[in-house]
């Protein structure tokens, strides 16, 4: 029995991603989001690309309602914690909120592109870049 399962999602299909790295050997799962597929009507080539990426990861592949499938998998494994990588997606945020009703959700950050924690003006790229370029070439700050 595992205390933690890893939820692999579409913003981090890296075998060295933070959730898989933090929980080596933990049961891991990918869930095809049937509602999302229906809404976006993705073409076959996108499915193939993702599936090929999944085949290099130590994941069980399922489909359906994501939260339901994740809970079911966690229960199968006897896990109380669902670990995953950070994502900016609003769907990810909604799913995480839903899962927190029944499980501990551990969201792990991916390596930052910028080693900068302060506020950045995002009104236009030029404003973002005015800050970002001061940090992004700094070899001493690399991850």
């Amino acid at each position: 029995m595992a205390n933690t399962i890893v939820w692999v999602h579409g913003d981090c299909l890296d075998p060295h991603g933070p959730a898989l790295a933090a929980h080596p050997g933990a049961p891991a799962i990918w869930v095809w989001d049937d509602a999302l597929l229906a809404e976006w009507r993705l073409s076959l080539k996108r499915i193939v690309f993702i599936y090929e990426s999944l085949l290099e990861l130590p994941v069980v592949i399922r489909r359906g309602d994501v939260a339901t499938q994740l809970r079911r998998f966690a229960d199968e494994q006897g896990a109380t914690t669902i670990a995953t990588a950070q994502s900016p997606s609003p769907r990810f945020a909604a799913l995480s909120r839903e899962l927190r009703h029944t499980h501990t959700v551990e969201v792990l950050p991916v390596a930052p592109f910028l080693a900068y924690q302060g506020t950045i003006d995002l009104k236009r790229f030029s404003r973002y870049w005015a800050t970002a370029e001061r940090y992004v070439f700094d070899k001493t700050a690399q991850s």
């Binding site: 890296d14 060295h16 073409s43 076959l44 080539k45 690309f49 599936y51 090929e52 990426s53």
Partner: peptide, 25 residues
């Protein structure tokens, strides 16, 4: 690809092409 065509018929109906670009690390 044959398996995914069968499993995701709606995706194949949207467009059945498969890119030469491979997924994976």
């Amino acid at each position: 690809i044959a398996y995914l065509r069968a499993e995701f018929p709606n995706a194949a109906a949207t467009d059945d092409n498969v890119a030469e670009t491979r997924g994976g690390r």
